[in-house]
C-alpha cells in the first residue's frame, strides 16, 4: 500500500501546518523586530518581541507534543552524528537532518534569549521592556547591551541558515524552502521507512491559546493585577 502511494503521489507530506506557520511567522517577526527598532517604533518592537516569545514557547511545546517531524526527539542527534553528517552528508531524513536540527535548537535558544532580555531592556529614553522595573536601571542597561549583542548572533545564525538552505537547493537539488511552504517533499528525498504521524492542528491551536493565556495572565499580574 505504501509503495503504491509512493508511485502515485510524487510528494509526501512531512511538515504540519503549525510548524510551517511558526517558521514563516518567525521570519516575519524577526524582520519586523529589526525594522521597528531601527526606525524607533518601539511599541511595534514590543509587540513583535512578545509575539516572538509566545511563538517560541509554543514551538517548545509543539516540539514535545507535535507531529513527528516537529518533535525534538526526531531531529535532536548526538554531536557525533551531527559531525558525521556535516562531514559526509550521509543519510536521508524526512524532517530536519542532524545539522538542521542543531540549527533549529540554536535559533530557538538564541531567539528566546533575545526575547527574554528584551523584556528587561530599555532604550534610555521613554521606553522600557515590561519587566525592566523589576531589575533596576543598571541591570536593565546591561541586559540592553546583551540584547544588542545577541542580535549579531541572530544575524550570524540566519546567514548560516540561508547559506545551508541555498546549499541544499543549488548543490543537492533539495528545495527546502518550497517544502517549508507546502509541507511536502519529493518521495525521493524521504526515506521509504519514514512513518510520520501528524498531530491535529486544533491541538496546536489549543497549545497556542494556552501560551497566550499564560502570557496574558503574566502580563496583567506584572502590570498590577487589575483584572484579578
Amino acid at each position: 500500500m505504501a509503495n503504491d502511494l509512493r508511485e502515485h503521489t510524487p510528494h509526501v507530506q512531512v511538515w504540519d501546518a503549525p510548524t510551517r506557520l511558526f517558521h514563516w511567522a518567525i521570519v516575519i517577526l524577526v524582520f519586523v523586530s529589526w525594522l521597528s527598532v531601527d526606525q524607533g517604533f518601539m511599541t511595534v518592537h514590543l509587540c513583535s518581541g512578545l509575539a516572538l516569545l509566545a511563538l517560541l514557547v509554543f514551538r517548545i511545546g509543539w516540539g514535545l507534543i507535535g507531529s513527528t517531524t516537529a518533535r525534538f526527539r526526531d531531529f535532536l542527534h548526538p554531536p557525533r552524528t551531527v559531525l558525521a553528517y556535516l562531514r559526509n552528508g550521509a543519510g536521508m531524513y524526512a524532517g530536519h537532518n542532524p545539522a538542521g536540527g542543531l540549527m533549529v535548537i540554536a535559533l530557538i535558544l538564541v531567539l528566546l534569549a533575545q526575547a527574554v532580555t528584551g523584556l528587561f531592556a530599555n532604550d534610555g529614553l521613554h521606553f522600557s521592556g515590561p519587566l525592566a522595573l523589576l531589575v533596576g536601571d543598571d541591570a536593565s542597561t546591561r541586559l540592553t547591551a546583551v540584547h544588542s549583542t545577541i542580535f549579531n548572533v541572530i544575524l550570524l545564525l540566519v546567514w548560516s541558515h540561508v547559506v545551508a538552505v541555498g546549499f541544499y537547493l543549488f548543490v543537492k537539488g533539495h528545495n527546502l524552502v518550497k517544502a517549508m511552504v507546502t509541507g511536502k517533499k519529493p518521495h525521493a528525498h524521504v526515506p521509504a521507512e519514514a512513518r510520520i504521524t501528524f498531530t491535529r492542528s486544533y491541538i496546536a491551536l489549543l497549545l497556542l491559546l494556552l501560551v497566550l493565556t499564560a502570557g496574558a495572565v503574566a502580563w496583567f499580574t506584572i502590570q498590577g493585577g487589575a483584572f484579578l
Binding site: 534610555g124 529614553l125 546591561r142 540592553t144 547591551a145 544588542s148
Partner: peptide, 10 residues
C-alpha cells in the same frame, strides 16, 4: 554617553 556609549549605541 548613557545612550551613545558602550552600554547602548543608539
Amino acid at each position: 554617553i548613557s545612550c551613545h556609549g558602550a552600554a547602548r549605541e543608539k
